[in-house]
Design a protein around this nucleic acid. Structure first.
Lengths: 200, 200
DNA sequence: CTTACAACAAACCAACTGGTCTGTTTGATA
DNA sequence: TATCAAACAGACCAGTTGGTTTGTTGTAAG
C-alpha cells in the first residue's frame, strides 16, 4: 500500500480547492467549509497547514496565482525578438491555454486586486508588488526593443507598460462580465493597433 | 414642526449608505446591519422599502451607480465636436470630479461587474446591458466623427469602443490597486496616443 | 520496539448574518 | 375625529461562519 499520509500533497489539495473557490466567489465569498468539502478533508487538516482563512488566501495568491501568471505572461516576454509582437502574441495565445471557464471567472490576480485592495493591506501590497514586477518586465522588454531599433526611442516605456497591463486586465474584465470572447478578440485587435504606434 | 416621516427620504438614506458599503466592501462584503447603523434606521425600515439584500443591491446599481456614470461618462459624449478629444477630456476630467477616496475604491460599476458576474446573473445582466449602452454611445460618437471626416473611416467603431471602455476600466482598476494617481495619469497619456491613431 | 511528534478527524462553540414577527406611531382621508 | 394603511422600531430567530479543542493515528528516528 502506498503511503496514506502525504502532508505536502494534502496541503496542495487544500490550496487547489481554495483557489477554485476564490476564483469563482472571491476571497470574501470563499467558504472554508466548502473548500474542505471539495477535498474530503476536515478542519483539523486545514488549520494544521494554515494559520487561518487569511493565511490560506495569501498562500493561494503567492503559491498558485502569481507563479502561474509569471509563467504565462512574464517569463515568455524574453522569448520574442520583437516585444511589440511578443506582447500581442501572448494576449492572443491566452485563448489556447485558458479554458472557457477561466474567461468567465476572469484573471484571478486582478479579481483579488479589485476585491481586496481597499480592505486588506496584506493582499494589496502583495498584488501591487507583483503588478510592478510585471510592469517592469514589460518596460524592460520595450527598452531592449529600443536598443535594437525596433521600438520608438521617444516613448516612455513605463507609461506604455502600465497602459498595456491595464488594457489587458481591462479587456479580460470586460470579457468576464459579457461572458463573450468576441470582446476579448476585439480588444486584441485594438491592442495591436496601439502597439504598432510604438514601433520605431 | 416639519414632517417627521419622509419615506422617499429614508429610502434614499438607506440607498446611499448601502452604496458606500458596497463601494468599499463589495456587495458580498456589505453588511445590512452596518448600513442600518450608518443611517440610524432599523430593520423594519429597510425591509419595508426593500425586499432583501439582493433587491437593495440591484437598487443601488440601477438608481445610484448607473445614473451617475451616465452623467459623468455617457451624456457628455455629444458635447464634444471631436469625439477623440472628447473621450480623452472625459478621462482627464475625472480627476476634478472624483475624490481621492473614489480613486482608491475604484469604479463602482466595474467593481460590481468583477465581483458578481460569475455568481449572480441578475447583477451580470444589468451591468452587461449598461456596458453595452456605454459602448454603443462611444461607437456612435466615433461614427459621427467618421461622418465629419475627423475619425478614420476604416476603423471598426465597435472594436475601438470596447477597447476604449476596457482600457478606462483597466486603468481605474490598476490605480485602485496601486493607490497612486500617477498610474491614472500614465494611462491617460497612452490612451491619448491610441486615440490619435483613430484620426482621419 | 517504543517513543514522540507531525498529521490529521470530529465534535464543539461563540459570534455573526440576513431575515421575520409583532407592535407602535404617523398622517392622509372620509 | 375616527379610521386605516403606510412607515417605521425593536425584539427575536435559525442558519451560517471561522475557528478551537480534544483525541486518534501514521511514521520516522533512536
Amino acid at each position: 500500500m502506498t503511503t496514506e499520509r502525504n502532508p505536502e500533497n494534502t496541503r496542495m489539495k487544500i490550496l487547489g480547492a481554495a483557489f477554485q473557490e476564490i476564483h469563482k466567489h472571491g476571497y470574501q465569498g470563499m467558504r472554508v467549509d466548502n473548500v474542505l468539502k471539495n477535498t474530503n478533508l476536515k478542519k483539523g487538516a486545514l488549520y494544521h497547514h494554515f494559520a487561518g482563512k487569511q493565511a490560506l488566501g495569501y498562500a493561494v495568491l503567492e503559491e498558485l496565482i502569481q507563479p502561474r501568471i509569471a509563467e504565462l505572461w512574464i517569463d515568455p516576454l524574453n522569448d520574442f525578438g520583437n516585444p511589440l509582437e511578443g506582447i500581442h502574441a501572448l494576449f492572443e495565445g491566452l485563448d489556447a491555454v485558458w479554458s472557457d471557464e477561466s474567461f468567465i471567472l476572469g484573471c484571478p490576480l486582478n479579481n483579488l486586486a479589485q476585491e481586496m485592495s481597499p480592505i486588506d493591506e496584506g493582499f494589496r501590497e502583495r498584488i501591487e508588488k507583483f503588478f510592478q514586477y510585471w510592469k517592469a518586465s514589460i518596460a524592460e522588454a520595450l527598452k531592449t526593443g529600443q536598443e535594437k531599433g525596433i521600438v520608438d526611442i521617444s516613448i516612455n516605456t513605463d507609461d506604455c507598460a502600465i497602459f498595456i497591463l491595464s488594457s489587458i486586465e481591462g479587456a479580460l474584465g470586460m470579457t468576464k462580465n459579457h461572458q463573450d470572447k468576441e470582446i476579448y478578440y476585439s480588444c486584441g485587435k485594438e491592442l495591436k493597433r496601439y502597439l504598432n504606434t510604438l514601433r520605431a
